[in-house]
């Protein structure tokens, strides 16, 4: 007697409101509802592999890698001693992603493989140029006001509540850029010649449902030793804020339990260190390549 069209909505409302059935991963991914999808994994219900692959496909990171020629390095930093030439490869990496519907993105770049490589930092450059790194500073902070308040609480509560007194705290402050410039000018010159490393989030759309992308730059110093291979390791983190129908949006820093996080890693082999310059020129040349495209070209399965 009951018409199915009348019964189904009732079952649906009962299901969602009472029993708690959520939408499937396929339904979420079909509509690019990545925030919901990320939280469905946190809730132990979504298919992590399927969702991770789909979101990464939408993010579609575009990569460019080049080895900066020794002549270019020396021209950019003419004060650098000639011994620098040939000791390390300066490998520049740039990643640009699409903007996707998540609340925040995290992207980290690192090297992998069996050759010594590390991010280009002033300390490492000073070792390379044989210069002395400027000393770090220390600053000491005393907690007079806090200790006075703690003492007052202890007195007024007759010692029932006795907050601990804090001793002085010492912080290490790294050297300023000007100190690097004066103490290790060659290292500083090399560092300045490369555009700054780091990531920048670019976002658009409404504030409560943004789409977020990212661009990152990094330079690695790869030692020219042995015949090992170098690879790039890219860590990606998708973040979705939990909201409530009756509560204000909470920031990520407010409470981590209000954020759903989905992490994935992308691995891009770059080739043997001896042929790295030629290999990156052949692979990238003057254009960015999609990581997915590189995977497909190399016959690697895209299963992230």
């Amino acid at each position: 007697m009951n018409h199915p069209a009348r019964v189904l909505p009732v079952i649906g409302v009962f299901c969602v409101e009472f029993l708690g059935c959520g939408p499937s991963s396929q339904q979420l991914l079909a509509g690019n509802h990545f925030r919901e999808a990320a939280c469905s994994i946190t809730e132990g219900e979504g298919d992590a592999q399927e969702i991770s692959v789909a979101i990464t496909r939408a993010l579609d990171p575009q990569l460019h890698v080049d080895v900066v020629a020794d002549d270019t390095v020396m021209a950019a930093a003419p004060q650098a001693p000639p011994e620098v030439r040939g000791r390390v490869l300066f490998v520049r990496v740039r990643v640009v992603t699409n903007e996707i519907p998540v609340d925040h993105l995290g992207l980290s770049l690192d090297t992998a493989g069996d050759v010594p490589a590390h991010p280009m930092e002033l300390d490492a450059l000073a070792k390379l140029t044989g210069e002395q790194a400027p000393p770090s500073h220390t600053s000491t902070e005393t907690h007079y006001i806090q200790n006075a308040v703690s003492g007052a609480i202890s007195i007024f509560t007759l010692g029932l509540i006795d907050p601990a007194q804090r001793g002085p705290t010492t912080h290490v402050v790294p050297p300023l850029p000007l100190e690097w410039k004066l103490t290790a000018p060659n290292a500083y010159g090399l560092y300045s010649a490369f555009s700054g490393s780091g990531c920048e989030e670019h976002r658009g759309g409404p504030e409560d449902a943004p789409h977020v992308g990212m661009s990152c730059d990094a330079t690695f110093m790869v030692e020219r030793v042995g015949s090992g291979s170098l690879a790039l390791d890219m860590g990606v983190e998708y973040q979705a804020l939990r909201l409530s129908r009756t509560q204000e949006m909470r920031s990520v820093g407010d409470d981590s339990s209000w954020t759903c996080r989905l992490k994935t890693r992308l691995h891009v082999p770059l080739g043997p260190v001896g042929d790295l310059s030629k290999a990156t020129s052949a692979t990238f040349g003057p254009r960015f390549r999609a990581v997915r495209e590189l995977d497909e070209a190399a016959g690697r399965e895209v299963t992230r």
């Binding site: 509509g31 519907p101 449902a209 789409h211 979705a240 804020l241 003057p286």
Partner: peptide
């Protein structure tokens, strides 16, 4: 060494669910 490619915006379908969040 390479011009930055254009960034595409992947939009979410309107009327998305609000359940797991």
């Amino acid at each position: 060494a390479a011009p930055v490619p254009p960034v595409k915006v992947i939009a979410e379908s309107p009327g998305g669910p609000y359940y797991y969040r």
